[in-house]
């Protein structure tokens, strides 16, 4: 065998095999830029349960393949009970405004108030949100995003992107992308509210 041919053969044997080649006998995975933790808030069934009993981490992952394995094995948005939430946050950040990495930030959010209309599309829109966050296309160089949240409420499905600070110039991109990800029309406004303002029932700081 010539050296060149040997080199080619070695190349072939080193070719990574993805799940697309074989869904059981793969050798390689697609890493994500960040490690993400999925959290779940279960609905309160009695008053003695506090927030910390209800909000719990489910699983942490750091590859595209793990994401899909998990996503395809948990209830979809429209299967979740009322008063529950999904939160997907960078590992190490609790999905609470008290967390030091959230404390100076806020959230972009949109409420789908017509639940009957939204029920048919919320699964796909929430998935689009998740993919934009783990694939890192929700922002460019801003590095503002801490996590994404889905609230299932009696009056609405609500999707929010949590940011680490309230710097207007950096926030715009994230707000605009969220609007596109959720396939909102021009007149359907996303609002940014700082955690400080939501604590004091303040109004939206930016509307897009």
């Amino acid at each position: 065998m010539s050296d060149e041919l040997t080199a080619q053969t070695e190349d072939l044997s080193l070719e990574p095999k993805t799940v697309f080649d074989n869904k059981e006998e793969f050798t390689a995975k697609h890493p994500l830029s960040n490690r993400w933790t999925l959290w779940y808030t279960k609905p309160q069934v009695n008053k003695s349960e506090n927030w910390h009993d209800l909000l719990k981490p489910v699983i942490t992952f750091s590859s595209v393949e793990e994401f899909w394995g998990i996503y395809n094995s948990i209830p979809t948005a429209n299967q979740l009970p009322l008063k529950s939430d999904y939160h997907l946050f960078k590992e190490g950040i609790r999905p609470e405004w008290e967390d030091v990495q959230n404390a100076k930030g806020g959230k972009w959010q949109y409420s789908f108030n017509n639940k009957r209309d939204a029920a048919g599309v919320i699964n796909e829109l929430w998935l689009r949100g998740l993919l934009a966050v783990i694939g890192e296309t929700i922002e460019d160089d801003e590095n503002e995003v801490n996590g994404i949240v889905l609230n299932i409420r009696k009056q609405a499905f609500r999707v929010g992107i949590w940011t680490k600070d309230c710097d207007d110039s950096k926030l715009k991109t994230v707000g605009e992308r969220l609007k596109r990800v959720l396939q909102l029309r021009d007149e359907q406004k996303v609002e940014f509210i700082s955690h400080d303002a939501s604590n004091s029932k303040g109004s939206a700081q930016i509307v897009l």
Binding site: S33, E65, W68, N72, E136, D140
Partner: peptide
Amino acid sequence: KKLESKKYRYDPQFLVQFRSVIQYPI
């Protein structure tokens, strides 16, 4: 979609192709 500041960046069209492949019994 490549960016210096993001080590791994994937567009949704790429990511969604995994959806129907990665399905296993629970």
